[in-house]
Each structure stands twice: as C-alpha cells, then as structure tokens.
Design a protein around this nucleic acid. Structure first.
Length: 514
RNA sequence: GGUCCCAUCGUCUAGCGGUUAGGACGUCGGCUUCUCACGCCGAUAACGCGGGUUCGAUUCCCGCUGGGAUCACCA
C-alpha cells in the first residue's frame, strides 16, 4: 500500500531501485532536456487516434487531469499516432472534441502547442531518430537486420517442435556490431535488455513491483521504416516533455519494466508510475461495444451530462469513504492516488445512469444556466425556444429526466405548436366517456382569475369536489389534452407554463376530437 | 505455458485485529400523490476455500481455487 501524505507525493522523487544507469551520462543530447523544474507535477494523457474515445481511456485521462489540477501541475495531451495503418486525423479531431466536451482541458497539446511540442508523435520523428542513434552508439541498443519473414520462419519452426513454447527473439543480432551491418538493408533497432536481475519500481497504486529481466525480450524500439514503437516513443516523449507521473491502465503494467530499462539506458530519471485497475465488461471480459456504449460520443449524443459520466468513472476504482456524488471542485480537492483500489471491476451502465441522474437533479451540481444551455441544444429541432419558458420548466423536469435528451423529450408539449397525442392515451381519455369533464373544466378555467399553479390547484380541487368528480377524473383527460400523454409534470404547473390561452385552446381542440 | 496482478452483497465500494460487516446502484415491499417522476421508510443480499499467527481474524502470512493483464516491426 502506498504510504505518505499526498502533499509529500506531489514532490516525491521517483523511487526507482538504484541500479547502474551510467551508460550515456552527460552527453549533449541528454543535457538538452535537463532542467525541467520538477517542483510541479507534469502529467499527460496520450491517446492514439485509432478510433473513438473509449470511456476506459477517459477514466485514465481523468485521474491524471485531477492530479494535475489538484497539485497545480500541468496536463499534457499527446497524440500517439505512430500506428499509421489505423491513425486518422478524423479520429484525432473526435478525441479533442470529446475531451473538450468532458471539460478535461489540457495545458499543452496539439493545436495550442506548448513549450515541449510538437505534440503529435509523427511530428517528432527526428527526435526519436537522434535518441535511437545515441542508444545504438552507446551499445544499449543494436541494429537487427532480421526480416519479418525470417522471424516468422523461426516462429513457425518453434510452433512445430514445441507448440506450447512462447517464441522469443533468438538474439541473432544482439552481439553483432557496426562491422556486421548490412548496408542498404532495412533494420530495426532493438533494446539490449539485461538477461539477469530484476527491474522494479514503486507503483503509486500497486506498491513495490519486481519483474525478472529474463522475461523481457529485446524489444523493437524503432521499425525498419524509422517510426518508433510504443515503448520507445512513449519514453522519449515522457522524458523530453518532462512528465513526472504516468497514470495509466494496468494493461500497461508489462510495459513499465521495459520503459524503466529504457530510462536507464538513456541515463535519465524515470517518472513515477501509477497503474489503474481495469474496467471490464459485465461478464469480466474486456469492455467492448457489446456491453453498450463505450465511446464518449455515444454518451454525449444520448444526452448524458459530462460531469455525471466523469463522476461515475472516478468512482470506478477510487473512493472517498461513502461519498458517491462529487462536484468537480470537490473532486479535485479530494482526489488522491492512495485511495485507488487495485481490484479490477465491471462496468455497470445502470449505475452510471444513476450517478448521472444525481447531477441532473441537483442545481448545485449542474446549475440552471448549464442545464438550459444543454437543454436548448437538445431542443434544436424546435428552432429558437423561449428562454423564459426554458428556465420556468426546469424545476418540473429536473427530477424526471436522466439525460438532456430525455429532458427535451419530456417537454416537447411546451415547445411544439400542438400536443403530439399518444394514440392509446387519446383513445382512453379524449375519445370516450372519460372526456366528459373537459368541457366543464374549460368553462371553469376560462373564468379563473389568476392563471398560476398555486391558485389553480386549490380552485380546481374545490371545483371537482363540488361537482362530484375525483381529481383524477379531471386531471388525466386534461393532461392528455394538454401534453398528449398520461404522464407529465404536475397538471397545474403544466397549465401555468402553457398559459391560459394555450391551455384553453388545447382543451377546446381535445373536446372537438370526440 | 512464462511473468505479473487481483479477490467484501448481483454491481461499484467502506473497512486498515475486537463492527448487529456500513453506503450506493439494482431488486422487492410500503408511504406520499392529479399521472409519471422526485422524495421518504423498510426489506433483500457479501467477507471464495484450507492452513497458520493471535486471547481474537473480513483485516496479517502461506497454500489452493477462481478471475484478470500481458507475452507484435499495435498502442
């Protein structure tokens, strides 16, 4: 378990096990990037634009963002677009847009730039080339001229001789040097990893970790086309961007020793690492589309409030006693890595919905102004809607709408010219015998002195009683006449919202239906 | 298979040697009520198993079982 206060952790130096990292000290290349003031944490979110923004990724981003905001540190957004097959600019645009929608704004990143740019890996190729060259020169890495085909053959041969064995790079080029290099032939750069000993770190979440070096292969750092692979690009960037703390999913845990070895080979101090437990699907498998919406875009489109989504995600693998609901400033204040749990969990769309609903209901969590803005865009199909009506209807829909889309749908009667009758409701309450109260009610309402809920309610109640009606006998037909359906906010609120003229008009229209 | 990780209600979790094992979601009742919601009250339901350590283990240690991650010229 993690010890030490949060205040301590802010400036805590990384706690890497001391082992030799003498190789390429004091070279110009390294000194070029030293001198980042390490007093404030620098964190990053480094998505690859190979698809939509996944809610698992958002959770990772959120934890890093929260820590940056809490500590007054810097949050960097870096685009890891080295998978050229799958990366697209469209995906990048989507990711940036969703991050903004979520409110996870970044201090440095693509588009606005920053002191450590560029922030797209494909724009940093020259940098990787320099670092790779340095590593090869120092002997920490080497050129491997083995082709994919040769490797595939070796793999196949092993499969035949021992189907259960795990293939490892045979080390063909590990002990060769410049005199063996094949000019004009493509090569990859591999890290020369130690074959004995351990590599360890003190994980912010999982505590002391120790991985045997002989389980780590001579991984490829740079492809034959000169584009770096994940581990290399990641380390070069985290280092040159001055990242002090890397928060990421537990699926990256296996990459950490490799990256630590790389920092060691570079002769530089690694950042701290904190790994988050996995968010799995209902059955405990990898979270995917078949568990419902997994891309932020879908939640945005369904009208979920961003803060609600974030609140659910932060509570997944993190807790603060019994508190479930957090306003963002509260969360920033309370967030701490030490309260992160280590057990994987299962995504629950129902709980997400419930947490989001807490935000939808509470003006303290989503203030009226923000609610109205979101509601207005959800009501776009009605054109420009009356601002006053929007505010007025808020108290009646807040406890009823789980999403802005639901909110918009639940008040369509207020913004459309005529109610959109639900067929069954129309038949039951407007066409049959039950509609008989409509005409006398119309007459009564026409004479009501003040058309406000507080006066209409007692008046109509008294009138119903005096005429031998139950309030339900009056209210349900009237509700259908005014809203088109059998469920709505309180009838008298509906009347006040609609106003006398519209109310009477709709009652009249309903009466004519018979 | 190797390496690594994890283990409290169905789910998210609190708990950090002594608790009637708490909260939330869900589910089921009830109250409120002009409908639908909201709200309120109540119920349901968990420490995977076996060894230790200890006066005492959900809690500490070991083993087992069960889950998961990962082993690419993807990230």
């Amino acid at each position: 378990m993690l010890s030490g206060s949060s205040a301590n952790a802010v400036v805590a130096p990384s706690r890497r096990q001391g082992s030799s990292r003498e190789r390429i000290r004091d070279t110009p290349l390294n000194s070029r990037y030293e001198g980042h003031p390490m007093t404030k944490p620098r964190l990053r979110f480094a998505p690859s634009p190979t698809g939509y923004l996944h809610i698992g990724g958002v959770r990772t981003a959120l934890f890093n963002w929260l820590w940056a905001r809490k500590t007054g540190g810097t949050f960097v957004l870096r685009i890891e677009d080295t998978d050229r097959e799958r990366s697209t600019v469209e995906n990048e645009q989507v990711i940036l847009r969703e991050m903004r929608w979520l409110g996870l704004e970044w201090d440095e990143g693509p588009e606005q730039g920053g002191a450590h740019g560029p922030y797209r890996q494909m724009e940093r190729l020259e940098l990787y080339r320099e670092f790779a060259e340095k590593l090869v020169t120092s002997g920490a890495a080497y050129r491997c001229y083995a082709t994919k085909e040769e490797l595939e053959q070796a793999r196949e041969a092993l499969r035949l001789s021992d189907p259960k064995a795990q293939f490892r790079y045979p080390g063909w080029w590990r002990d060769k040097g410049p005199s063996d290099w094949l000019s004009d032939r493509p090569y990859v750069v591999r890290l020369r990893t130690p074959q004995s000993g351990h590599t360890g770190w003190n994980d912010l979440v999982f505590g002391e970790q120790r991985i045997p070096n002989d389980t780590i292969q001579d991984v490829v750092l740079v492809r034959s086309d000169g584009v770096p692979l994940y581990n290399f690009g990641c380390v070069v960037d985290d280092y040159t961007m001055g990242i002090t703390l890397v928060g990421r999913g537990r699926d990256h845990m296996i990459n950490t020793p490799i990256q630590l070895l790389l920092y060691q080979a570079l002769g530089v101090e690694p950042p701290q690492f904190g790994h988050l437990p996995m968010m799995l699907g209902k059955g405990g498998e990898k979270l995917s589309k078949r568990h419902g919406a997994v891309s932020v875009g879908e939640y945005r489109e369904e009208g979920f409030p961003a803060v609600g989504l974030l609140n659910y995600l932060v509570r997944f693998g993190w807790s603060f006693g019994d508190q479930e609901v957090f306003a963002m400033p509260d969360l920033i204040e309370k967030f701490d890595w030490s309260r992160t749990s280590r057990a994987d969990g299962k995504f629950d769309a129902l709980k997400l919905s419930a947490i989001a609903f807490e935000h939808m209901k509470s003006p303290a969590l989503i203030d009226d102004e923000a609610y109205v803005v979101a509601l207005r865009s959800a009501l776009a199909r009605y054109g420009t809607v009356d601002e006053r009506k929007l505010h007025a209807v808020l108290p009646t829909i807040r406890p009823r709408a789980k999403t802005f889309a639901e909110a918009a749908e639940s008040v369509d009667w207020l913004f459309s010219d005529a109610p959109n009758y639900d067929e069954k409701s129309k038949e039951k309450f407007l066409l049959g015998d039950k509609a008989k109260t409509l005409a006398p009610l119309l007459e009564f309402l026409a004479a009501a002195p003040n058309f406000v809920a507080a006066e209409l309610e007692p008046a109509v109640k008294a009138w119903s009683e005096a005429n031998g009606y139950g309030l339900g006998d009056v209210a349900q037909p009237a509700r259908v006449a005014l809203t088109g359906r059998t469920f709505s906010p309180g009838l008298f609120d509906v009347m006040e919202l609609l106003g006398r003229e519209v109310t009477l008009g709709r009652l009249e229209a309903a009466i004519r239906l018979r």
